[in-house]
Amino acid sequence: MRRLLTSLVIAMTIAGSVPALAAQAVPPGNRHAEQPDIPGASVRRTKGTKTTFDLKYEKVYDLLSTDHELMGKIKKVSNAYGINPIHVIGAIVGEHTYNVDAYDRLQAYYVKAASYAGESFRFAYDGENVDDFVDRPQFAACNGKSDSYTLWSCREDVWESDFRGKTIGGKSFPNNRFSAVFFQPFYAGQTFGLGQVNPLTALMLSDLVSRVSGYPKLNEKNAGSVYKAIMDPDISLAFVAASIRRSIDDYKEIAGVDISDNPGVTATLYNVGNSRQRAAALAAKNHSSGTTVWPEENYYGWLINDKLDELKGLL
């Protein structure tokens, strides 16, 4: 049902059945006066490492303010994807404030990436490789989709509607996200590298990154190449920029709103993912309400807008 509703809203928007919003620009700043609640898992993880969110923010800010090589790479990749570099900064700051600790220098990310070289990984659940799983008949509607973004988005929708939390052919599937079940062989909530990109997101954005940055296309049968892409700082930055570019385009094309001047919104979408489905939900809400409903920032995006003047000073 979720897959059908999302597809219908997207189709209606493209066909013009949903009133066009002429890509109205989202107003600057936060919609919430106070920061929304930070998830308990993030709070516990931060306390467990005997630090605070303020200290983690300061650490990643120091990395960005002192590593001129890194800032140069951020500006270059942002230009390639046609986005303001403040969006990439927002994603990196958000991830390293709420999810992981920043290293002191860019070189440490290269060292960490090298530690994964040669490792043997595969994407699977309960002994079933993901490439065999998506060959099941439930995924037949996805087979004609050649672009990696639409292909893996379709497969994710099928997972949600046909498999998540269900028992199919005697096999039970967890009530969890597709990325968490099949694409995290080490532990739940697993993301990697400078941009903290998860493997499914990398597979979705593979064609865009290959087209713009020239990196080889990724394949789910070669998990090692996927990990290399999201661990290597240079390639990872391309995926960060591509993710933000995709979110901006999804909201403009599906919901008729332009989020490109609100880094808090793009940071929120970088954090929560599923920009296509969220844009469709916003389009439906605007259509039913008859008035403009703006996308809202979460705790992660709220911080970026709140610190925006300071972060812009990095550029």
Rank of each mutant, 00 (worst) to 15 (best):
P27I: 13
V9M: 07
V181S: 08
A141T: 11
L203F: 01
S179A: 14
K59E: 05
N271K: 08
F53C: 11
V293R: 02
S42I: 15
D258L: 13
Q190W: 01
R2V: 14
F178Y: 11
A238W: 00
V100M: 13
L303G: 01
S225A: 15
W152R: 13
T13P: 05
G193M: 12
I244L: 05
W294G: 08
K59T: 10
E95Y: 08
P233S: 14
T51P: 11
Y300V: 12
A255C: 08
A113L: 06
I74V: 13
F239G: 09
I74W: 00
K221P: 12
G127C: 03
S115Q: 12
A124Y: 00
Q196F: 01
E296V: 09
D234I: 13
F183W: 07
L237S: 06
I259S: 09
Y270H: 08
P185G: 14
G169Q: 07
R44Y: 10
A117Q: 10
W159A: 15
R105F: 05
E128F: 01
H96D: 06
D306I: 04
I248K: 02
V88Y: 01
D132W: 06
L218W: 06
A280N: 03
E34A: 15
K73F: 01
G144A: 11
G224H: 01
A180W: 06
A283L: 04
G94R: 08
Y109F: 10
K217R: 14
V158W: 00
F139G: 12
A267I: 01
P27M: 09
F178K: 13
V18A: 10
P295T: 06
Y215N: 15
R164Y: 02
Y98S: 14
I10T: 12
A25E: 15
E296L: 11
E253H: 08
K76G: 10
L303E: 00
D104Y: 03
G224V: 08
N274A: 10
S120N: 14
Q107T: 15
L21R: 15
S17F: 09
L282R: 04
D234S: 15
K56W: 00
T66Y: 01
V158T: 14
I235S: 08
S289V: 05
V272M: 08
S288P: 02
E220S: 13
Q277T: 09
K47T: 13
A229D: 09
K221H: 07
S288V: 12
D232G: 07
I10W: 00
A80K: 14
F192K: 09
F123T: 11
D162G: 06
G195D: 13
N222E: 08
I86K: 01
P295S: 06
V293M: 04
A180D: 14
G301R: 03
I259D: 06
A241V: 07
F163M: 11
N30E: 08
Q190Y: 00
Q138N: 08
A41K: 12
G256R: 05
D126G: 04
E58T: 05
Y98H: 12
G48A: 09
V88A: 11
G224Q: 03
K145Y: 02
S247P: 02
T46L: 02
G264A: 07
L282S: 04
N271H: 06
V93L: 00
A33Q: 13
A114P: 08
G189K: 06
F183A: 12
P174E: 02
D309E: 14
F163S: 08
T13G: 11
E220Q: 12
F53R: 10
D132G: 04
Y299S: 15
T150S: 15
F186S: 15
D249P: 01
